[in-house]
Nucleic acid binder design. Sequence first.
DNA 1: GTCCAGGGTGAAA
DNA 2: TTTCACCCTGGA
Length: 310
Amino acid sequence: MTTSEHNALTGQSVFIPLGFVDIGATLDGGQAFRWHLDNSGYRGIIGRRVVHISQASGGVVVTVKDGKGVSGVYHSASQYLGLGQDLEGFAQRFADDPCLGPALNGYPGIRVLRQDPWECLFSFITSSTSNIARIKLNVGSAAEKLGFSIGPNITDVVFPEPEVIVESGEQYLRDLGFGFRAKYLVLCAEAVASGQLNLFDLREFSYTDARNALTQLHGVGEKIADCVLAFSLDKPESFIVDRHILRALRKWYGLSEKCSLSYASEWARDHFGEYSALANQYMFHRERLSARAIAWGGPHVDRALPEDGV
DNA sequence: GTCCAGGGTGAAA
DNA sequence: TTTCACCCTGGA
């Protein structure tokens, strides 16, 4: 079915020809924190619209859930899901890579999202020494308490603007369970609300300049900056190094046990180039599956490469 | 009940 | 360059 054929059939949904997309691993795999499993797809917000995304042959179907029609949704959803991202070039170039080759075979269709920069920055400041379950809880409660409702579900809210976060204050965020991150969030919200930092401008900056601008913010180090750069600021050359990724780099690429996080990040950006953010997501996903299997008592079978079960 | 880890950062040594 | 405090939630 072509895009126009599909759109002619229904006034409430659009088809986006992305090829196979693993929507679970992409929308609910640690890049974004406000997608909710809903029947066989995910419900969430893109721009100021409530949408449901589900897999279809050759792409995804995006259905609007706020009764406002599909105008503009094809454009915003294809941007968000990274239409035009060179997944094939990436897969070809790293087909023989010891970590990525098997990962690409085992779970293809992971994409790098292009999110709203402010919500992305807020989410990853929240992520500091936290875990995905808790990040979802925190970001979700801030959205639901302070965001603007645009649909029937409690989660159908536009993420609160920086001004609203400033107004709510540190203590309010602490009461919501953000802990020591509350102060960082308010300070960053102030920087953005005052115009001292224009996040959208950073899309036009070089990787290095944008990263330097972000790390000026209190509570934003190299790791969180790289998340925001990769997932919202058009920097595919960004490579995020956390404890899991560092372990993977040592295991698969022979990095020394004692090399620093920033050395590892530089090495990876040099090695993966313009595909760094994509490589990062496949590596993270593989490492996370493996860690989870071990936590659940194994025996761990790596879906990507059955022979190397841990 | 206790213990521990979880997509780190900033400040001080 | 390394160490430590910072909050708090869910699972073992």
